[in-house]
Amino acid sequence: MNKNFELGDIVKMKKQHPCGINAWKVIRIGADVKIKCTGCGRIVMLTRSKFEKDMKGIIESNSVNE
């Protein structure tokens, strides 16, 4: 599985948010990763290891180098 995520990517997580949406936008990358629910706008911060473990895949990539 491709775990090469970038700032601005829309990713699918293992569990969906209580609002019913399973898509999250990556808004900060560092030792921690901050993601924002694309449905209700709730922001969650996870450790990088927890994020990489729970991320199922990239729905929409924000790559400009391709």
Rank of each mutant, 00 (worst) to 15 (best):
I59T: 12
W24Y: 03
A31G: 11
V64I: 14
K50L: 11
R48E: 04
V26H: 02
H17C: 05
A23V: 13
G20R: 06
I29L: 15
N65R: 07
V11A: 00
V64D: 13
D32W: 04
Q16H: 04
V44D: 14
C37K: 01
E60N: 13
C37G: 00
G39T: 01
F5A: 08
K14I: 00
S63H: 12
N65Y: 13
A23K: 12
D54N: 04
T47M: 11
A31T: 13
K36H: 05
G57M: 05
I58D: 04
R42W: 07
V64K: 14
G20F: 01
M55T: 06
W24H: 04
M13D: 11
K50E: 14
H17N: 10
D54Y: 08
K53Y: 02
G30Q: 13
I43Y: 02
K14C: 00
A31K: 13
I58M: 11
V11K: 13
E60G: 14
K56G: 14
M55E: 09
I21V: 11
M13L: 15
M13R: 14
F5M: 14
D9K: 09
K12L: 15
I35V: 06
M55Q: 10
D9S: 10
I29V: 12
M13A: 10
S61V: 08
I35E: 07
T38W: 00
D9I: 05
V11W: 07
M55K: 06
I29G: 03
C19R: 08
E52T: 01
K15Q: 07
N65L: 12
I21F: 08
C37D: 02
G20V: 11
K50F: 15
K36D: 05
I58W: 11
R42K: 03
G41R: 03
N62C: 09
E6A: 10
D32N: 14
T38C: 07
S61L: 08
F51E: 02
I59V: 13
M55A: 02
K25L: 14
Q16L: 09
D9G: 00
I43C: 06
N2R: 15
D54H: 06
E52K: 06
G30R: 03
V44W: 08
H17Y: 02
T47A: 14
